[in-house]
Lab assay of single mutants.
Amino acid sequence: GQVHVGDTTYHFPNPEEARKFAEKAAKENNLQVTQHGNTFKVE
């Protein structure tokens, strides 16, 4: 799974890890998570 936060892309071998990371980043920054397959975008 990939997580895009601003201009930075994080790669995770496990989509579940990617999702947890995205949700945590979104919560900390008052942002939203959008999911496209195994790619998550925090914005």
Rank of each mutant, 00 (worst) to 15 (best):
E23S: 05
T39G: 07
E16Q: 09
E43C: 13
A26H: 01
N38F: 04
V5D: 04
T8Q: 14
G6N: 09
T8Y: 14
A22F: 01
T9A: 06
E23F: 11
H4A: 06
V5E: 01
T34G: 03
E17P: 00
V5I: 15
A26Y: 01
N38I: 04
D7Q: 11
D7P: 07
K27M: 11
N29T: 08
K20F: 07
G6R: 06
A18R: 00
Q35M: 07
P15T: 14
A25D: 02
R19F: 07
H11A: 06
K24V: 08
T34W: 07
E16T: 09
Y10H: 07
N14D: 12
E23C: 14
T34L: 07
G1T: 09
E23A: 06
K24Q: 12
P13Y: 07
K27P: 00
Q35L: 05
H4S: 10
Y10F: 11
Q35A: 07
E28I: 11
T8E: 13
P15I: 15
A26F: 02
E28M: 12
N14S: 14
V33W: 10
L31G: 13
G6A: 06
T39H: 15
K24S: 10
Q32F: 12
L31W: 12
N38C: 09
Q32V: 14
V42F: 02
K27Y: 10
G6E: 05
P15E: 13
V33I: 10
K24G: 06
E23P: 00
Q2F: 14
V3R: 00
K27D: 06
A25Y: 15
K20P: 00
N29R: 13
F12V: 00
A26T: 02
E17W: 07
T34H: 12
K27T: 08
Q2H: 14
T9V: 15
P13L: 10
H36M: 11
A25P: 00
A22H: 00
A26I: 01
A26L: 01
F12W: 02
K24L: 11
G1S: 14
P15V: 15
H36D: 13
N29S: 11
N30A: 07
T8L: 14
P15G: 09
E23R: 03
Y10E: 03
A18L: 00
A25K: 13
K41A: 09
H11S: 08
T39D: 12
A25T: 14
N14P: 01
D7G: 14
R19K: 11
Q35S: 06
H36Y: 13
G6F: 13
E43M: 10
